[in-house]
Write a protein that binds this DNA or RNA. Structure first.
Lengths: 177, 177
DNA sequence: AGAGTCATGTAACGCGTTACATGATTGT
DNA sequence: ACAATCATGTAACGCGTTACATGACTCT
């Protein structure tokens, strides 16, 4: 599912501007997808050319005209098609975990710092999801709960098992310090 | 951390061929990184050109010569540098979750099928990590435990909360069936 | 005064995937 | 017989990021 298709999906929920779509990617979607303006705006233009969305311009002073996009019947059909396909395997890329794979090459304080920072990030993310106001959509509630559950599991695992890597670093890490 | 750097890291653990590095990506690393031959082989050639690894060829019959790579002192220093940088935010792309965001557009049986498949995949992944033979490295043990913890949390969340989406689909999903 | 928000876009570039090419040997 | 494993590589292509360009208004 590319950004273009996801933009189409977001427009099944509500008409929106490119800017608002970006906001959505930073909200509920943030922990399992990401997209920059550089991919959203061209995607929206392409969708318009293909007749899958329509675009209504609202003049504004001092800012570029606001372009509100709405999905068409054709767009809805295309998105339904995308929903009927088998989801492909998750693609994850975690530098944090990749680095921990080499904990033995780092000093124990470096490993501890890395883990402390990660735990802080996780607490922040959990607080973010807990602080989100309710949209009234069950899907959003589900997704936020999902994010929280994963983050909590990660945090708890780190707290309970960090000693494995910090001890490792103590033994092997003299070269790095 | 690009594939090139990660290949360098893997070579700090043990000399290896491109093929064996691919295996590593499919093993301990599989749930938080991925790489194809099309990126590994060119990376290895580049690392050789840069003097960060050396390559020893072993003639074989019927197969391309086996090329065993070993990291150099310069390579080790470069990798240490990479380890001292701040890890960037995880990049996650989950089509499964993206699709669930639109559960209301699907029939309840479709949503149920999606979740059933996911739970099966998770059970398989958990079994994979539990079945891995011990490498003797604490880091590998930690990473496998991490993967299991996350997968279990995900599975449990799905089991306990799937009704939220299946009920949703029942209410809104008449159009899709 | 300076950061953040709102608002849209383009161009260059990087990184990696996918598909193709080759082919013997081993397991089911 | 057929699939999987071992083994390396190239070329085209896609997708998305990053950086740049522009600029007013509002909060601290």
């Amino acid at each position: 599912m590319d950004i273009r298709t996801l933009c189409l999906g977001i427009l099944t929920l509500e008409d929106a501007t490119g800017y608002e779509i970006k906001k959505t990617f930073e909200g509920e979607l943030s922990h399992f997808y990401d997209a920059s303006f550089g991919s959203i705006y061209p995607a929206l233009n392409r969708l318009t050319d293909e007749g899958l969305v329509t675009c209504t311009e609202h003049a504004q002073t001092g800012r570029p005209d606001k372009k509100v996009y709405a999905i068409t019947a054709k767009g809805r059909i295309e998105f339904m098609d995308a929903l009927s396909a088998k989801p492909r395997k998750d693609r994850i890329r975690s530098e944090f975990l990749a680095m921990l794979m080499f904990a033995g090459l780092m000093s124990s304080s470096r490993v501890a710092g890395l883990i402390d920072d990660r735990i802080n990030d996780l607490e922040r993310d959990i607080a973010f999801y807990e602080g989100c106001r309710d949209t009234g959509r069950n899907e959003d509630l589900f997704l936020r709960g999902f994010g929280c559950a994963i983050y909590r599991a990660e945090r708890d695992y780190l707290i309970e098992n960090r000693h494995m890597l910090e001890a490792e670093a103590l033994l092997a890490g003299s070269a790095a310090e």
